[in-house]
Design a protein around this nucleic acid. Structure first.
Lengths: 210, 210
DNA sequence: TCTCTTTCTGACCGTATGGTCAAGGTTGAG
DNA sequence: CTCAACCTTGACCATACGGTCAGAAAGAGA
């Protein structure tokens, strides 16, 4: 269906239902894990009968796979921040901003992703071995080039990438812990900014880019 | 029972069985999540009939709680590295070493801990609010003192701590991803050392301590 | 050895879950 | 208006799971 065609009522309903189900599933999978999540709970949260879920998504696995893929897309898109930057300060700074923003806006997705990887990536192992592996190699090469050009200190590019992932995703995956240590209150706008700035400052200075 | 008393056969068996069950449970909970883990699987892995598990641990929740508590102990013990150090370089360096070693030696425990926190800490919320909160405040104050004394750059102590946790635990929690990006092979001794050094270098330079 | 306590285990039970299905309702092209 | 395709849903099913229990086995103390 082309974008300029008028959408039929059916198409609109389908699209909306799928979106509701996916959103509900993301939340339930994040909060209960794959094994702890139930189709009934997802259905209730989406406001649909359980049998209807199985009309749109044949099995729990299929629904889960869609959720994980959706997250992977967002995740990869943030990687764009890395490109078209003259040097490490701009690239890594923008990447940290983007990933921190994802942690803030998509905490459920981040948790589902973390859970998937922690359990051995049963669903997205092929993505790890293809897309992610290539992406990582490309960025590691880029970082190495910056090092060779004297734009930053000689650090292991891969461990730097792991550090970026770990630090930014921590704010989503361990958000509950952070909230608890913040007096039980979610981080405010100001605190999120402070978090971003802290991470950027420490890492950029840590790699000798500033 | 005092330590110098001879242990009866019964006591020895009990101790051994509990240890086997806890080890098996840690692995299964880490790999499948609480919801995905089954008592049958834990029993098989421990080499005991399922009914026997329920003799030692009344419910799945109780077994899980023991596993999580065990991990928290190890986690807290690593925190000792922070003490009795003259300044940030020694303290944070030792802490990174200790936590990286835990990630390497107790990857299952780390995953269970991560999973527990990600799911809202249903079991160890009270620990977060008491022990962890106090520990964090103490170390944050200590870091602030170092800043005031000019031993390191002014960074937000709490965000620094989060960064330490995130970065070190990442090597356990996302170990599968790292292994995949390492050509499907676990990190070698040399690579673990490189990881530790990278983390220490970037962070210690990042906080202006070296 | 005898006896009491602790430990072990196969068989069993109620429940919750993922998934199915048939019947009825709704939509839209021709 | 018609009808075929599509969507919705309550009721249902088979299975797998956590947990129970009665009785057998093994150990400890006398």
């Amino acid at each position: 269906m082309a974008a300029n065609e008028r959408m039929s009522k059916r198409d609109a309903t389908r699209r909306e239902n799928e979106a509701r189900i996916l959103a509900a599933a993301e939340k339930v999978f994040a909060e209960a894990g794959f094994g702890g999540a139930t189709m009934q709970l997802i259905a209730d949260m989406a406001g649909l009968p359980k049998a209807n879920l199985h009309y749109y998504f044949a099995t729990k696995e299929e629904l889960y796979r869609k959720v994980v893929q959706q997250i992977f897309e967002i995740w990869l898109h943030a990687a764009d921040s890395f490109d078209n930057a003259p040097g490490p300060v701009e690239a890594i700074g923008a990447y940290i901003d983007a990933k921190m923003e994802i942690s803030r806006r998509h905490p459920f997705g981040s948790k589902v992703w973390a859970s998937e990887v922690m359990h051995g990536a049963p669903v997205i192992q092929d993505y790890l071995e293809t897309t992610l592996r290539e992406w990582t190699k490309g960025r590691a090469d880029l970082i190495q080039r910056w090092i060779d050009e004297g734009k930053m200190a000689p650090v292991d590019p891969r461990h730097l990438l792991y550090m970026l992932w770990a630090t930014t995703q921590h704010y989503a995956d361990f958000g509950h812990q952070i909230e608890t240590l913040n007096g039980g209150k979610p981080l405010t706008d100001r605190q999120w900014k402070a978090a971003k700035d802290s991470v950027k400052t420490i890492i950029l200075r840590g790699i000798g880019a500033i």
